[in-house]
Structures are given as structure tokens and as C-alpha cells.
């Protein structure tokens, strides 16, 4: 077993309290009696539906782009890898509003890419696609970073062996690399999904806010704070429950992956 100094318990309790007490505090203010009636209101259901829908798609995009990106980064050397790795990490530390501005000046209809697209009649702003784009932008780094670490740690020994035994690189990827990285993939995916679900600033700046189209749960909560704080709290509870479910599921998948 790990041995650690007993004093570590003190900051541990402090840290846990810092994170848990505000959430518990919120739970005491949730209007439990009116909860069912609040949650089946069209506003809540549309926000929840839109949030889950966009997060599923953006997480899918993140997996398709992120897994190979992590693999390339983990198996490459040289100055360009460091540069690429930094680039991948930047959106992670960008304030969301900055991310939104970056997307706006790129994909907005006067933007670098948005302007030519607008010429041919494609405008991304104010659409659900803009929400998905914002979510993918901010959550991709989380998957890449957590998966790359795991892939590098696994070192590629098994991959070399499989390759020497005649497996094609693609076959090695599907049969060796991915299964070994399973646990990291699960937690990285959960992180990316959670980040997408909580995405707020970039969406607000870039996609706008319209019920059923771009107003996801966090945007709805932000708006409701002004008029119906009970519903805002009820929806916050939904967000927390979904988060716990996702993290719980990822933990299960991890545990399962570690046995295989």
C-alpha cells in the first residue's frame, strides 16, 4: 500500500470541502417540491434535449479527430511535435469567451473561413452547428491530452511485437493500441463530454441563444437566473446529475478496462 504522511488528511478534507460544500449548498436551495413540474416545462426539456444532442455529436467528432491526433503525437518526436502539442493544449487554457471570439472571427460570416462559406450560402452563426463547433473546439484538447499521456506511457512495445508478427498498422491500432488505451480513452471521452456539456462562453459568444436551436442547459441556466431562479437551480441539479452519471460511467469503464 501507499504510505503517505498523516497531515495530508487535513488539506484533503479542506479540498474536499471546498469542492463539495458549494454543491451541497445548492442542493439545499433546490425547490424539491416543485422539481417535477419545473423539469417537464418545455424550456427545460428543450434545453436538456439540445444539450445532450449537441454533446453526443461533438463527443463523436472529438473521438474521430482526437484519437488519431493523440496517437500521432504520442508516437512522434521532434520540434514540430512539441509545437503541435502546445497548439492542442491552448484551447484548454483559453478563457471560453476568447475561444468564442476566435471562432467568431474565423467562422463568423465576416470571418476567414466564414466569409467564403457565406458567399456560397452557408452560414454557421446562430445554428446548432455553431454550438457543436464550439463544444468540439473546447473539448478536443481534453481527450487528446489524457489519451496521449496513456499512449506514450504504454510505450508501443506491444505494437512493435504485433507489427513484427505481420499485423498491418491499422490492425495494430484497432487490436492492440486502442484496447490498451481503453481506460484512458474512457476517462478522456467522459472529460470531453463533460466539458462540452458545461460549455458556455464560446457558445454564447459565437452561437447565440435561441430556445431549441442554440440555448443549451448552461445558457438557459444563465438566462433563468434573471427571472426564475428556482428553475435555474432545478436545471443546475440536472446538469450535476448528468455529470455524476457520466463520470460514474467512465469510472466503471475504466475499471472494466483495467481487468481486460
Amino acid at each position: 500500500m501507499n504510505r503517505y504522511p498523516r497531515w495530508a488528511w487535513l488539506p484533503f478534507v479542506g479540498g474536499l470541502a471546498l469542492l463539495a460544500v458549494p454543491i451541497l449548498g445548492m442542493l439545499t436551495r433546490v425547490p424539491w417540491g416543485r422539481l417535477p413540474e419545473l423539469l417537464i416545462s418545455p424550456r427545460s426539456l428543450e434545453a436538456l434535449r439540445l444539450s445532450l444532442f449537441t454533446c453526443l455529436i461533438s463527443t463523436g467528432i472529438v473521438l474521430i479527430l482526437g484519437v488519431p491526433t493523440a496517437l500521432v503525437l504520442a508516437r512522434s518526436r521532434g520540434a514540430w511535435t512539441t509545437a503541435a502539442r502546445t497548439l492542442v493544449t491552448v484551447p484548454m487554457v483559453l478563457p471560453p469567451v476568447v475561444a468564442g471570439l476566435a471562432l467568431l472571427v474565423t467562422f463568423g460570416r465576416r470571418g476567414l473561413i466564414g466569409a467564403p462559406l457565406s458567399q456560397v450560402g452557408i452560414e454557421i452563426g446562430f445554428t446548432t452547428a455553431a454550438v457543436i463547433l464550439a463544444q468540439s473546439f473546447v473539448s478536443l484538447p481534453f481527450l487528446v491530452v489524457s489519451l496521449e499521456g496513456a499512449l506514450r506511457a504504454s510505450g508501443g512495445e506491444y505494437e512493435r511485437v504485433a507489427g513484427n508478427l505481420g499485423a498491418s498498422p491499422s490492425r495494430v491500432f484497432w487490436k492492440v493500441t486502442l484496447p490498451i488505451a481503453g481506460p484512458a480513452l474512457a476517462s478522456g471521452t467522459a472529460l470531453a463530454f463533460a466539458r462540452s456539456l458545461g460549455e458556455f462562453g464560446a457558445t454564447l459568444t459565437f452561437a447565440g441563444s435561441l430556445q431549441g436551436t442554440t440555448r443549451t442547459l448552461p445558457l438557459e441556466i444563465y438566462l433563468l437566473r434573471e427571472s426564475d431562479s428556482e428553475l435555474a437551480l432545478a436545471l443546475s441539479l440536472v446538469l450535476i446529475v448528468v455529470a455524476i452519471l457520466i463520470v460514474g460511467l467512465a469510472t466503471r469503464l475504466r475499471a472494466w478496462g483495467e481487468y481486460v
Partner: peptide, 14 residues
Amino acid sequence: ALLAAALLMTGCGG
């Protein structure tokens, strides 16, 4: 991982 995810979820900020 749990803590990180919890932080992300709540970090949407005003």
C-alpha cells in the same frame, strides 16, 4: 478524473 470533471462541469462561469 472525477474531480477534474466536476470542476469542468461547474466551471461554466458567469
